[in-house]
Every structure is written in C-alpha cells, then in structure tokens.
C-alpha cells in the first residue's frame, strides 16, 4: 500500500475465557476453556479509506472492532494507530480522542437517562476540548445539524427518537471529539432498509467532508459493496480473503467468499440454481484442525484437514488480493 496506514493490525489474536467458575471446574475435573474469537489477523487501513470486515455471526468481526478501539486487551499481536501502539485499558487520551465508535443497536448505545445534548457533549467534556458551556452548546448544535437533526433536539431524551434518528445522534457523538478514525460495528443492521441507505449516505458524505477513515463491520454484502474500498472476509476468527472490494466482488477466489456472494439474491437472474452452503459454523471453542472452513468446503482434501493455510497474494486487475486457501494455492479451484 502506497499511502501511510492510519490503523495497522499485525498478527492480532484474542481469546475469551469461557471456563466455568473455579469450584465447578475443580469438581468436574475440567480444564480452562478458551474461545478463540480472533486469530492471526493482519491488515492496514490507509487514511481516508474504508475497510470492511464481513462474515457470519460469531466470526469475530465485532471483537476486532472492540480490539481496535482498545476495549479489549489483545491476547496476541499488535495494533498501531498512526504509528503509536494501542494498549487496552491504559489512559491514552490523545490517541482515544482521535478514534471513536458507532454501535450496532441505536436503542442500547445511547444512555436513556441522559439528554441528547449531554450524550453528544460527553466526548468534548471527557477530553476537555471546550470548557465554556455556551461554546459546547454551540458545538453540539452544529453536530446535530451536521447529521440532519436540529439543534433543538438536544434537549430531548433518546426515547423520543426513531432508530434512524438515534443512529444519527450516535454518529454526532462519535464525531464530537473530531476523530480521524471511526469503527462502525454494524451501524445499520438494526435499521429499516430505507433508513439504512440514509445513514450510509450520511456516513459516506461525512467521510468525504471530514476525511474520515472507517473500519466498517457488517454481515450485509450489499452494504459493504456500497461502503468499502478494502474488504476482508472473515471465517471463524480468521481473514480468509482480503483485498480491494471491487476485486473480490468481481472475482471471488476463496470458496467461502464464493459461497457468500453466491447467496446474494440477484435481480437479473431470479430463480437461478445455487450451491447451498452445507453445515454450520463450527464452535470457536473447539475449531476444526487445519483450515477451519474444511468441514463445509466443497474443495477440501486431506491437506486442508491437517494444515492451516497461510495467506497467498494474488495479483488481479483491481489490485493485490490475499487469500488463505490451499485449493486456490494449488489451482484446484479452477479445475
């Protein structure tokens, strides 16, 4: 990548301790159990661009989002923001001010007991960006107008707004500390389709105006196609295919990506025959050996069951795509 990356993630891994309480474990003779949510994830987001992560529920997308803003401490690997390492749980106000997050559920992401103006002003107050009350009020009013609400809405409570309006408030809050980088964790999945488009266009518009960098998490491929420059497809905590969004949508190579894109309904070919995706996502507590996708993969062979595939860089018309798949590496997918 030519441009300097704003966010760079290397070899990121995160595990959750899902063991039973100590006493029960001791009585049943169990060992500690860990859920491997994220494994060996590396990517970089150039300034001003959008990188999207897609995948099924439970594949670790949201965990990466939370790791990126420092909500969790990574088990392995490193996260660098503009060249500086992020360590979770430590006070780095200067770094934290430059990033923020937009959440999935607009009904849970705004404190129901706070007035909208206080919600939006919280980052300003926490980072001490402004002291004067009138100044803060003016800034909050400006932010509300920027996201398509009116300054008078600041005196209301969140429950007086619709889902789409709440998501606008959430965006205004995320923007209030003038960040450069926003993590968007499925920001439209709780909204109606018509409202989704409004919010996505607002986000694109703000990106163009303010030069924002997005890490965009979604399971909706249509939304991702609309938003992304770069795209990473995740399966069970790993990135299986990553590259320019156009390249992947034009010519998906990884069998999982192909199955995902295959599942998109098409207006031009209604009722076409599809290859159904068999099976369920395996448990991340006991992931299958080798390539984690092998139990569902139509191309799996003995090597896939034994050996973890490493990312392989392929050049395409739209740029370099990294694919972690033995079948692609061996050319079996074209057979």
């Amino acid at each position: 990548m030519a441009e300097a990356a704003l966010l760079e993630i290397r070899g990121l891994g995160h595990e959750f301790d899902v063991s039973r309480p100590w006493l029960q474990r001791a009585l049943r003779g169990e060992r500690r159990r860990f859920l491997r949510a994220v494994d060996e994830v590396s990517f970089a987001i150039p300034r001003g661009q959008t990188l999207s992560l897609v995948g099924e529920s439970g594949c670790g997308k949201s965990t990466i989002a939370r790791l990126a803003v420092g909500l969790y401490r990574p088990s392995r690997g490193s996260i660098h923001f503009d060249g500086t390492g992020i360590v979770a749980g430590q006070a780095q106000p200067a770094l934290r001010r430059r990033m923020n997050m937009i959440f999935q559920d607009p009904y849970a992401s705004l404190n129901p007991r706070w007035r909208v103006s206080d919600i939006i002003a919280e980052p300003i107050r926490v980072f001490g960006l402004m002291k004067d009350r009138a100044q803060i009020a003016a800034r909050v009013g400006g932010l509300l107008s920027q996201v398509g609400l009116t300054p008078a809405d600041g005196t209301k409570f969140p429950h007086e707004f619709s889902g789409g309006q709440r998501q606008r408030i959430s965006i205004a809050r995320a923007l209030s500390s003038e960040p450069e980088f926003l993590v968007c964790d499925e920001p439209t999945s709780a909204l109606d389709v018509s409202v989704q488009a409004q919010i996505l266009n607002l986000m694109k518009d703000l990106q163009a105006r303010l030069g924002l960098t997005y890490l965009f998490i979604s399971h909706n491929l249509a939304v991702v196609r609309h938003m992304s420059d770069q795209l990473g497809v995740m399966y069970l905590g790993r990135i299986v295919e990553m590259g320019p969004a156009e390249a992947i949508f034009a010519a998906p190579r990884h069998p999982y990506t192909r199955l995902l894109l295959e599942a998109i309904p098409s207006l031009s070919e209604p009722g076409r025959a599809r290859v159904p995706v068999g099976g369920e996502v395996p448990s991340p507590i006991a992931p299958p050996p080798g390539c984690t996708f092998h139990p569902r993969c139509p191309l799996a062979n003995a090597r896939c069951r034994a050996e973890v595939p490493q990312p392989l860089t392929l050049q395409t018309a739209h740029g370099a795509v990294d694919i972690a798949c033995h079948a692609v590496a061996e050319g079996r997918d074209r057979a």
Binding site: R66, V69, G70, L71, A91, Q92, P93, R96, R97, M99, N100, M101, F103, S109, E122, P123, V126, F127, S170, R173, S177
Partner: peptide, 8 residues
C-alpha cells in the same frame, strides 16, 4: 461501551 471507548 461508548463511554469506555473514549476513556471515561
């Protein structure tokens, strides 16, 4: 989480 993200 929104509050924790900004380091409250």
């Amino acid at each position: 989480m929104a509050a924790r993200v900004i380091g409250v």
